[in-house]
């Protein structure tokens, strides 16, 4: 898994490539927590290059969504691939996250 981070005006865009699973989710968790420590509370997580997610990845997403909500921030998601969308649907995550087709669209929502 590769993580790319880009600071925009109102949010930090995190692009994840590859597999978000039990052996990689800890890296994303650390990255998000350290950004939150610096005061960031708005995140766009772009999944256009992420072809796999397991419950370990879902756990990190829920954790950051909870923390950001407490800080009155926003976590938006974009560009779910088919496999990731299927996992989101089964986990009931499609209903609790705001998901956009593209990162460009999502950025307008901050």
């Amino acid at each position: 898994m590769d993580i790319n981070e880009m600071k925009k005006d109102k949010a930090t865009v995190i692009t994840i490539e590859g597999r978000l699973d039990s052996s990689t989710s800890g890296i994303l968790e650390k990255k998000l927590l350290s950004l939150m420590d610096t005061g960031e509370k708005n995140f766009l997580l772009d999944f256009s290059g992420m072809d796999y997610i397991s419950s370990a990845g879902l756990r990190v997403l829920l954790m950051v969504a909870k923390k950001s909500k407490t800080a009155k921030g926003k976590v938006l998601l974009s560009a779910l691939t088919d496999n990731v969308k299927e996992v989101f649907d089964i986990a009931g995550f499609t209903d609790i996250f705001t998901i956009f087709a593209t990162a460009e669209e999502a950025l307008k929502d901050f």
């Binding site: 419950s55 370990a56 756990r59 969504a65 986990a91 009931g92």
Partner: peptide
Amino acid sequence: APDLKQDIEERPIGGLGIHL
């Protein structure tokens, strides 16, 4: 089985693996 109807605040972290 987890309760999938809960919102972000109420959802416990974890417990989705076996459901999947």
